[in-house]
Amino acid sequence: MADHLPILEVKDLHTHFFTKAGTVKAVDGVSFSVKPGETLGIVGESGSGKSITAMSVMKLVPSPPGKIVSGDIRFNGESLLLKKEKEMRKIRGKDISMIFQDPMTSLNPVFSVEKQMMETILTHENMNKQQARNRAIELLDLVGIPDAAKRLKNYPHEFSGGMRQRVMIAMALACNPKVLIADEPTTALDVTIQAQILDLLKKLQQELGMAIIMITHDLGVVAEVCDRVMVMYAGKPVEFSSVKELFDHPKHPYTWGLLSSIPQIHNRKERLEAIKGLPPDLRDLAKGCSFAPRCTHVKEECLTKDPALLEDETDHFVRCLLYEQEEKVIIHE
């Protein structure tokens, strides 16, 4: 896939929320790109800005109070930020589509699945109702819902959680999107169902060749499905590399903390190494590295100097002053 041009490129994205209590820099300088057929993982805890990054790409950030203040989002070479709402509507659901975290609340309970699925298809594709219905049946079949033709008439409450998530995936895939953004697609599901859904996504990606952006807080899911991964903390990417690199040679102290704070079955520890403290309040971030107050390797200069995103020879980016001394190319800021 290496020779493909990226289908989606995000450059130095800043999304801020202007509230009475102050400006919240939810996304503060995020850059990434995805190629067709590739899966990019975005990991971080609640409030790290991973979902707002996704919402920004879809241009779904509620405004006011939110606003994309600077940066660029390019889909297929065209800037999405310059597009009007009417043009965005044609892109959403067709070229870029999204699976939301909670399948219970993201389907409309008063319409049948048939109606909701056909709405997407009829809006974007040149099809009549019968064709759209057939397409919907085909999609439900594809995501592994048995007896699709009959189930199409059902309402969301008649499906189980895993089945609803499949319906969501089917809807997201309705127009063969080029980019699929999956925002915590399996967080609300049980492990056996999660395994089914992740498998399904991988299979569909191979068949349809789409790019997937997988937003999750679960490093296990990342290890399972992603090719490259970006770790976010307080609105900024702190580490960005291939999945293998990240797990084999994690560089940022936050990533170390994350990896050692999850209990692992193959390696039972007497005690988990928790990251001390709490995530910072994004309204008044102190100067310097946002992770400094919780970092075990904090130096004096971390409190005053903003670390830049550094790159090494293996395409491994890290935002930390620990690596400043080494010879590296500064690519950002």
């Binding site: 056996t192 999660q194 296990g220 399972e224 193959h266």
Partner: peptide, 10 residues
């Protein structure tokens, strides 16, 4: 047990 995604990709 086999369904748990474990944080090690190798």
């Amino acid at each position: 047990l086999s369904s748990i995604p474990e944080a090690r990709p190798v």
